[in-house]
Structures are given as C-alpha cells and as structure tokens.
Design a protein around this nucleic acid. Structure first.
Lengths: 126, 126
DNA sequence: TCGGGTGTTCACCGGTCTTTCACCAGGTAT
DNA sequence: ATACCTGGTGAAAGACCGGTGAACACCCGA
C-alpha cells in the first residue's frame, strides 16, 4: 500500500502538474512548455487544468463546463468548442510534435500527450 | 512518469473490465488496448461493454440489441451485424494477435480473447 | 477616449455516426 | 442440386456533432 504524498486519483491539489513536456502550475496560473511560458487566458488556463487533472480519462463536456465555467452546460452553448480550439492552437504552436487534446465523439475529451503521428494509410477509415 | 495510474488509490474501481489486453471503463467511455486508447463510437462502445460483461458466454442477438439499443430487435434490422463488424475491425487493428468476437451461427456472439491463428493468408476473403 | 485583449455567440462547414440497403459467402434444409 | 437462412461486408443517405472563423460586447489600462 502506498503511503505516498500523492494520492493521484484522489483530489487534484497538486502544486505542479507534469504532462508530457508541459509543466502546469495551477496556483501560479503558469504553464511552461519546453522552457517557454505559455500565454493563456483565464478560460484557456482553467480548461487546461481541468483536462490535465483528469488523469488521462475522458471528461464529458458537461463536467468540463461545470469545472471551468461553473454551472450547467446549456444546450447550444459552444464555449467549450471554441476554447478547446484556442487551447489546441496554442499547444500546437508551443509543442508541434505532440497532441494533447483528443476528441471522443459523443463522450468528451481526453487529455494525454501523444505524438502527432505521421500519416498512415487509412485502410477502411474509422 | 508513472506507468501505473490511479486505480491503485482508495476507490474500488470495480467498474473496470479487464478482458485479455483490453481495459474497459464503462463509466468513462474509455477503452485502452496495450496502453493506447481506442476511439469508439457510442454504439461500438455500448456493444463492446455488453459483450465484455457476458463473461465469455454466448449472447443472443436479441439480448445484445436489447442491452445496447434498447427495445426489441425487429426483423431485418442489421445494425448489430454492422457494428459487430466495426468493432472487430477496430479491435483487430488495435490487437492483431487476438480475436475477441466469435460468431455462433444461429445462437449469437461470444466474447473471449483467443489468439489469432498463427499464419494464414486471407487472400480471397476467408 | 481609444485600443487591445477577452469571452460569448453565431453561422457555416466538414467529418463522424447511425441506419439502411444491396450483394455475397457459407451452411442448412428440402 | 436447389432453395433458404444467417451472417459478413461495402456503400450510401441523412442526422448529428464538433471545428473554425468571425462578429460583437465587455472590461480595463494607457
């Protein structure tokens, strides 16, 4: 049994989150990618933290909205989509070789550093 | 970086199914095969969960339909066939050395990890 | 006041998902 | 053998979902 200081699954009160080449400091509102600090807005940062804290699992859009915006996601609200996009752009620009935000249609988003894989021939599409 | 993730923590994550090299998290809509997350649609995922939960027994198509689609299977409905196929393709692509979905003609499907037969050439279909 | 950054909403579009159809192969019954 | 049944497979139509650019209002500092 672990008597570790990190109850990984438990609550995310971590001082610093390391995800791939990302270093996220929720307390300081700071994200460092490859030694370079990212310039994120409040929403972008909140979204990133919420994603990074989900331990590689899928987070439903309702939950994301709840955690970042607070309150229930109303039908037709596209804020999440817009900010997922903004985040993707900034992460992509900071770390072009790594994909972090993965869409699971109908389920939500998953945050995990995966190499932006070279194109392969799609046999039967997916 | 941790190779072992959070499931070691306090919570009994009994909602996780392990079948062969597959790790299925019905609650999270997530399937991991060999450390890699699968990208399944809602139907594909539902079907996989229904199959994986039947403990290696044969599931009749009527029951499958009932559990995944909800409602009675109408004559002529081929949805199950189509999605069995889609699932097979994705599982095959993720774990080429293992067959999971076995057809029992006239009875239903059985879900069980079995090694793909050594080497054969699927030249003209099968 | 002006200007830039930020957050929200809208509109459009493109890709994905689901269902349905058509056709085929292999097995079963007649 | 012939007809039938059952499931495999590819494709197409429409619904649905998410990606993306842009417009707009707001806030705040210069």
């Amino acid at each position: 049994m672990l008597t570790r200081t990190m109850e990984a699954a438990g609550r995310p009160h971590d001082d610093v989150l390391y995800v791939g080449a990302l270093e996220i400091r929720p307390m300081d509102g700071l994200v460092v990618a490859g030694g370079r600090a990212l310039n994120l807005s409040v929403r972008e940062f909140g979204l990133l933290v919420a994603l990074a804290r989900s331990g590689g699992g899928i987070v439903r859009r309702e939950d994301l909205y709840q955690r970042v915006w607070g309150g229930a996601l109303r039908g037709g609200d596209r804020s999440i989509d817009v900010y997922i996009h903004k985040l993707r752009v900034k992460l992509e620009e900071a770390l072009p070789d790594c994909r972090f935000i993965h869409t699971h249609v109908g389920f939500g988003y998953r945050f995990s550093p995966e190499p932006s894989h070279a194109f392969h021939i799609p046999a039967t599409g997916r």
